[in-house]
């Protein structure tokens, strides 16, 4: 039997014991301190790029990102010093300075509220506002809302899909998600599994149906009913959450804690549902 090693550390004055291999953020959660994070995602390798999850670690010159820093014996950690709160607020203000006020980024907006960030503070120039990329009928890309969290890159790559259709290109504020020379999605290596859409924390990647309904102001989160069922295509048995609005499926996701999918689907599971609600005329024609 392997004996699980444990580590002892102090978080905001409270001494605690956690298993080796725990991240600081998980350790904080265990003592009831929830640390905000934007790029971190339960299903993905931490990218630690948003820096909203920084905490103060005694002995460290800079703040450290709690999503990926592993606990060590004797660490003394502070989660809400003025320095920490200042950095968090700075992250929110910087991100907000690149986008319009009406962005669809609930997690960022939550962080902004919690830190009392002023969206206008650093709006002194360049933004990411740009035309929407609407080049296929399954999902739309609006990089004006992108926070460059790298989730889509990770999910398209080794963390799940292994398709490697997208990556970050450019540097500095020009860094952006790219299909390779900005090709349209149908011309790229994309296989339209939509796993990137599922993990995207903003409206940067959004299902075409949801996007169209939002355009017409008909997307109403409160009226959506979610039913968990099983995919009808191949024999893998993927769990589907059908999001139904006004009697129609408008989105399909999969739960991250499901043993088969761990939140991931293929294009058929995610978008291949139209046959149950195709209009009759179309079917009679076929």
């Amino acid at each position: 039997m392997e004996i699980e090693e444990s580590r002892q550390l102090t978080i905001d004055g409270e001494v605690c014991q956690v298993p080796a291999g725990t991240t600081l953020r998980e350790a904080c959660l265990q003592v009831g301190k929830e640390i905000p994070a934007l790029c971190w995602h339960e299903r993905l390798t931490p990218a630690n790029t948003c820096r909203a999850c920084v905490v103060e670690l005694e002995g460290s010159r800079t703040l450290v990102s709690s999503c990926s820093r592993m606990v060590e014996d004797g660490m003394v950690v502070h989660t809400d010093t003025p320095r920490v709160l200042h950095a968090r607020k700075g992250v929110a203000e910087l991100l907000l300075s690149t986008m319009m006020d009406d962005v669809n980024a609930p997690e960022l907006q939550k962080l902004a509220q919690a830190t009392e960030a002023d969206p206008a503070h650093f709006r002194v120039g360049e933004t990411l506002v740009q035309p929407i990329r609407d080049d296929n009928d399954l999902y739309v890309r609006d990089y004006s809302q992108c926070i460059l969290c790298y989730r889509c890159v990770a999910v398209c790559g080794e963390d799940a899909q292994n398709t490697f259709a997208i990556h970050v290109a450019g540097r500095g504020l020009q860094a952006h998600i790219d299909t390779g020379f900005d090709r349209s999605l149908p011309d790229s290596d994309c296989v339209f599994c939509g796993n990137c859409v599922q993990v995207c924390p903003t409206g940067a990647l959004i299902g075409k149906t949801e996007w169209s309904l939002r355009q017409e102001n008909e997307w109403d989160e409160k009226k959506i009913q979610v039913t968990e069922t099983t995919c009808s295509y191949c024999g893998v048995g993927c769990s589907l959450d059908l999001h139904v609005l006004n009697g129609r499926i408008v989105k399909v996701t999969s739960p991250y804690n499901h043993p088969v999918t761990q939140g991931m689907l293929c294009v058929k599971g995610r978008y291949g549902y139209e046959y149950v609600q195709a209009d009759v005329a179309h079917l009679q024609g076929s």
Partner: peptide
């Protein structure tokens, strides 16, 4: 089933 949705 699969020829109904708009796959690019």
């Amino acid at each position: 089933q699969s020829n109904v949705y708009a796959h690019p």
